[in-house]
Nucleic acid binder design. Structure first.
Lengths: 131, 131
DNA sequence: CTCGATACATTGTATTGCTATGTATATTGC
DNA sequence: GCAATATACATAGCAATACAATGTATCGAG
């Protein structure tokens, strides 16, 4: 147990990329529910599969609580045949409206940033020169 | 002065959109300096013009300090003919490398989110139905 | 010499994602 | 029965960061 604590090496989230997620995870959670109800862990897996967006359990539940408190989601306990009850979340009408708005804002926002970094992206290849 | 304090009505930043900016503003500031040195307020105006990205003065200076402390920027006081000295910031080699990396990460990240919200965007038009 | 504009800077607050835990239920092995 | 394991939901404390509000300094105009 001397220094087995390198555990985090692959678990560690780049703090910058953690910051990037701020705000987008609410959008992502709502978007995940767009096509039908899912329960908490299922949302995690959905996001990881569909968008390579990895978030911790400790992250998703507070988000879902917040969204529910805002009236964007409703939840319902459902018994599972194997295992323990699951809390399924569904979009409310208000949630549906919100995610549409968020999506539109996001498209603009990301396009703006994209335009901003375009010169940086265009630069590619010049790095080789240095060798 | 009774309730002139509606001041914020147009000054108010949507808290969600404030969250969206987290992390991206460091990238934006570095990107603004890609084509040459600028001073603080000039960066604000550049971002507002080029990317509709509005940030408060109280936001840009801490960012520049952070980036400088990380060795991504250098700064230099320059006398202005009219007015007060300006602190011009320039990218270091390390900063140039960082912004290239950030730009690449951003492109991936935004593409992932875009894919996620695509079904929501496709939904457009259905809202009209309600009228 | 005061007023306003420009420019840089700091302080306190709120939001939010993450790590580390904790709790409950059901299944499996003995 | 009962520990061990897996699934699922939940909370507490921490860290990062954008913002509003404020403060300081310099210069030009009147």
């Amino acid at each position: 147990m001397t220094f087995n604590n390198q555990k985090s090496v692959e678990n560690l989230t780049d703090p910058w990329q953690a910051q990037l997620k701020k705000g987008t995870l609410e959008m992502a959670a709502l978007a995940a529910l767009w096509s039908g109800p899912l329960y908490g862990l299922e949302i995690l897996r959905f996001l990881e599969t569909k968008s390579e967006l990895v978030l911790a359990e400790g992250t998703i539940y507070p988000i879902l609580s917040r969204l529910k408190k805002e009236g964007l989601l409703t939840s319902e306990w459902v018994e599972a045949e194997a295992g323990h009850p699951r809390k399924y979340y569904s979009l409310t009408a208000s949630g549906r409206e919100r995610i549409r708005h968020m999506a539109a804002v996001w498209v603009d926002f990301s396009a703006n940033l994209r335009r901003l970094i375009q010169p940086v992206l265009d630069h590619k290849g010049q790095k080789e020169e240095k060798r």
